[in-house]
């Protein structure tokens, strides 16, 4: 009888056994990651220190060209976050607070760019932004400007192009956080005599903060590694770090130097993630958020 009274511990152990065997399902993916990611990364690290020597790093750190490029890269990433936030926040708000069909249509629109090649999207921007592009032609015809404005070939073009690519990440982070805000809180605030604007500022905005941080962090970190968009829309005289890496490796065949630039970018990204982790639950970004 007593064995029937206590079936749960045995069941739990058996269940755990089943789960540990499940773990094998992750093996192919883990193996692929090890072969195609960890090994090349280690190889790059070794090469950056040995081809010809660790002097690669000294060269990068003491060169104003590289330091400036890192600074430009960070600045463009910051601007990209700002643009994504300004465009994404109201969009996410509507998406989180509207009825299901509207919310689904908005979600579809946000995800649509994912199905198009970044290359195609970025070249599409040149149709709008170049000197004889649609915007300049239109404004010239209207007589609002006398000479074409420089809309690309500078940080503006890069930021616009990168923001377009990264906007979905921002919107999805924001929507996740906003959907967690109980609509009754806004009603409660209204009933307590607080108008819609101050209700937004004092209740909704602070509670959407985690989404802003999470979206900002993921957009910022991803923006640091962009190559195609700055190469097509950016300023060739102020290259981002990814462009310099390509130049080192492809043009100068300096694998050690390129490796050093890459490792520094990687370390920079990890440092920013670590600092960010103090403010954001990183689990939220990787989708591991528990039920707690």
């Amino acid at each position: 009888m007593s064995s029937q009274m206590a079936p749960s511990p045995g069941a739990a152990v058996r269940f755990r056994g089943v789960r540990s065997r499940w773990g094998a399902l992750a093996l192919p993916g883990a193996a692929a990651l090890a072969v195609f990611f960890v090994v090349p990364l280690a190889y790059m690290l070794v090469r950056s220190l040995s081809d010809p020597s660790p002097r690669n790093y000294v060269e990068v750190i003491t060169s104003s060209i590289y330091l400036k490029s890192y600074a430009t890269t960070l600045l463009v990433a910051v601007w990209t976050v700002v643009v994504c936030l300004v465009l994404g926040y109201p969009y996410a708000y509507v998406m989180a607070r509207s009825s299901r069909p509207i919310s689904m249509i908005l979600g579809f629109c946000v995800l649509m760019p994912f199905w198009m090649s970044i290359l195609v999207r970025t070249y599409a921007w040149t149709v709008w932004l170049q000197d004889n592009g649609l915007i300049n032609t239109f404004l010239l015809r209207l007589g609002l400007i006398r000479e074409p404005m420089a809309l690309m070939g500078n940080a503006l073009g890069t930021t616009v192009g990168m923001a377009q690519v990264l906007l979905p990440f921002m919107v999805l982070s924001l929507v996740t956080a906003m959907k967690r805000i109980d609509p009754a809180l806004e009603l409660a605030s209204r009933s307590l005599g607080v108008g819609p604007v101050r209700t937004f500022l004092r209740v909704f905005l602070p509670l959407s903060g985690p989404g802003v941080f999470a979206g900002g962090l993921i957009v910022f970190v991803t923006a640091l590694g962009f190559y195609l968009t700055p190469a097509i829309l950016g300023d060739p005289t102020k290259p981002l770090i990814s462009q310099l890496i390509v130049e080192r490796v492809n043009t100068l065949l300096d694998f050690g130097g390129g490796g050093a630039l890459g490792i520094i970018l990687l370390v920079l990204t990890l440092v920013i993630l670590l600092i960010g982790a103090r403010f954001v639950d990183l689990k939220e970004i990787v989708g591991l958020r528990g039920e707690s």
Partner: peptide, 10 residues
């Protein structure tokens, strides 16, 4: 709602 002076407990 915010000008009614009516309280709500949810």
């Amino acid at each position: 709602a915010h000008k009614r002076n009516i309280g709500v407990v949810f």
